[in-house]
């Protein structure tokens, strides 16, 4: 049997890291994506132009390039003492090292940053398209009844945009979960990284790769079902056509 206790512990830790990474980057990317998407809708150019540049940059650069750039390349841009202080030897990395047991937690942080920016750029576009389906008349009606823009955004535009865009956002978040496997390339021991380690120790490649495939399938299908259930809870009424 290829699953020895030590290997199970290794894979379990990896799986926990993959799930934690998925949850944290998904939440951050959704919030950031909504903000950037709203920024793109603004009439003021100093808001809409940077938002558009953000979207086009982080959507058109592959996730792996972003991950490698932030994790491995960015620290090299600084002189050694500053590099140590910024990326490898400060309270944040110490805390993270204590929490995860990693020797260089920056690789995890930088990789997560790359994933978050990539996913946020996609979500910003999806959300912007979703807001476009909110009827202009509803906004005008709310405004003429004295609602402030803050209320219009909070009660009408943001929920409406998320409601219209949620199927696409769901599939993007599942994509984000699959992209966490890219962090193994910057020596983060996520589930896929743990699988690679287990293979290099045991040379039983096929067994571990098939196990990994099963786990990622369960994660994908589970995430899809979970997010659909959450959407049904959040948006119980079917959308009326605008």
């Amino acid at each position: 049997m290829f699953l020895q206790p030590a290997v199970v512990a290794l894979l379990g830790k990896g799986l926990a890291l993959t799930i934690a990474l998925t949850v944290i980057t998904s939440v951050l990317a959704t919030c950031l994506g909504v903000l950037v998407g709203l920024g793109r809708l603004q009439g003021r150019r100093w808001l809409s132009v940077p938002a558009a540049v953000f979207v086009e940059t982080f959507r058109n650069i592959p996730a792996l390039v972003l991950v490698v750039f932030f994790a491995f390349a960015l620290p090299n841009a600084f002189a050694p003492p500053l590099r140590r202080a910024l990326f490898f030897d400060n309270p944040i990395t110490h805390a993270l090292a204590a929490l995860t047991g990693l020797l260089a937690p920056w690789y995890l942080l930088g990789g997560a940053l790359g994933l978050t920016l990539n996913t946020a750029a996609y979500i910003a576009e999806l959300f912007r398209a979703g807001v476009g389906t909110v009827a202009r008349e509803h906004v005008d009606a709310a405004r003429s009844m004295g609602a402030s823009w803050g209320v219009v955004y909070r009660k009408l535009l943001i929920p409406g945009g998320l409601h219209a865009a949620h199927p696409a956002i769901t599939s993007r978040l599942i994509h984000n979960m699959k992209n966490t496997a890219l962090l193994s390339f910057v020596s983060v021991p996520d589930f896929y990284g743990a699988v690679l380690t287990a293979i290099s120790r045991s040379f039983q490649a096929i067994e571990f790769l098939l196990l990994a495939a099963a786990v990622y399938l369960v994660l994908s299908l589970g995430m899809s079902a979970g997010l659909q259930a959450a959407a049904r809870k959040l948006f119980p009424t079917p959308r009326r056509p605008a």
């Binding site: 496997a181 890219l182 390339f185 990994a212 299908l221």
Partner: peptide, 14 residues
């Protein structure tokens, strides 16, 4: 449902 990075190794090794 599978990450491409995993599919690559599955095809190559499998």
């Amino acid at each position: 449902g599978l990450p491409l990075i995993l599919l690559l190794l599955l095809v190559h090794q499998g």
